[in-house]
């Protein structure tokens, strides 16, 4: 004969706690998803930016811009640490200006010419030395994108900090909710707890009768939250169309990237049920032991 549960699960149901914890886990998944996406986007942007530089050659009075551009290209291409230096033709340059100037002809306008420089990331060129070498070219200016990279890094750090703060707030809220629920369960079963004390039960024994329910609640809520989170990313990926950028592409990247990245993403997301279970179990146990310890 299997002995009945000493603390009945019908008294003080944990359904509300399960729902609230599932919502918390869902929000945690979104915050973790945002962290992964920001981290990945920044890595991709900054590695591209670090690898590429641009040389801008402005038209100067009394110089032949074609000659100056070629001179700049030759100097750069021969510079140690530079993989390639390609002159963008005028139509490519015009294309870059389209967002501001439209498709009208740029003939007659003193549009600067650009050279795309790809550097060796393993052995990058000495930037001050390259800038000095380019002083021989009239109107040339080296743009290393460092300013943009710094801006992006700053923005990414801010977004990451916000995500971490959200995760922290979720944890604090979850702990507060579990404490409240634990007290409710104890209150609803006060007569049983008193009797258990009187027949010689230790606090740890009574706590074990209750905290198993919190363990199951944490695990269930965690998996519901992760399930909803994955469904949300899937929905964003499918409904966002086939664009190569934006939230839709990022969501697709989160779910269907290369195995090494996917394992990392899924590992982080599936840490949520583990964390929820631990929060439920530890908080409930600590609350129970503190409350039971003040009984006679």
């Amino acid at each position: 004969m299997k002995p009945g549960a000493i603390i009945p699960s019908t008294a003080a149901s944990l359904t509300s706690l399960t729902v609230t914890m599932a919502v918390m886990c869902y929000l945690a998944c979104l915050a973790i998803g945002a962290l992964i996406l920001v981290d990945r986007a920044v890595t991709s942007w900054t590695s591209g930016l670090s690898r590429e530089m641009t040389i801008q050659v402005r038209m100067m009075r009394g110089t032949d811009i074609v000659q100056e551009v070629e001179k700049a290209r030759a100097i750069t291409a021969a510079f140690p640490g530079v993989v390639s230096a390609d002159i963008l033709d005028e139509s490519e340059g015009a294309k870059l200006l389209e967002p501001w100037l439209g498709t009208r002809s740029l003939e007659g306008l003193p549009v600067p010419r650009l050279i795309r420089v790809v550097s060796d990331t393993a052995n990058p060129p000495n930037i001050p030395a390259l800038e000095e070498a380019l002083l021989q070219v009239k109107g040339a200016r080296l743009d290393t994108h460092q300013k943009w990279e710094a801006e992006l890094t700053r923005m990414a750090r801010a977004l990451s900090a916000v995500s971490y703060a959200i995760l922290l707030l979720i944890c604090v809220s979850a702990i507060a909710i579990v404490i409240f629920a634990t007290r409710a369960v104890l209150q609803a079963n006060r007569h049983i707890v008193d009797l258990l004390h009187l027949v010689g039960a230790r606090d740890s024994y009574i706590a074990r009768q209750i905290d198993g329910r919190f363990l199951r609640t944490g695990l269930l809520a965690g998996f519901i939250g992760v399930g909803l989170g994955l469904f949300t990313f899937l929905l964003l990926g499918l409904l966002g169309g086939g664009s190569e950028s934006g939230v839709a592409a990022a969501s697709r990247g989160l779910l269907f990237s290369t195995p090494s990245i996917a394992i990392w993403s899924y590992g982080l997301l599936f840490a949520v049920p583990g964390a929820a279970t631990l929060i439920c179990l530890i908080t409930a146990r600590v609350t129970l032991m503190r409350r039971l310890g003040v009984a006679t």
């Binding site: 002995p3 009797l195 024994y205």
Partner: peptide
């Protein structure tokens, strides 16, 4: 009496032994 209504008579009587492990 202070019997636990959700436990059988058997489980109620066995309670002190059960809590003693």
């Amino acid at each position: 009496f202070r019997l636990l209504d959700h436990l059988s008579t058997y489980d109620n009587v066995a309670l002190p032994l059960r809590v003693a492990g």
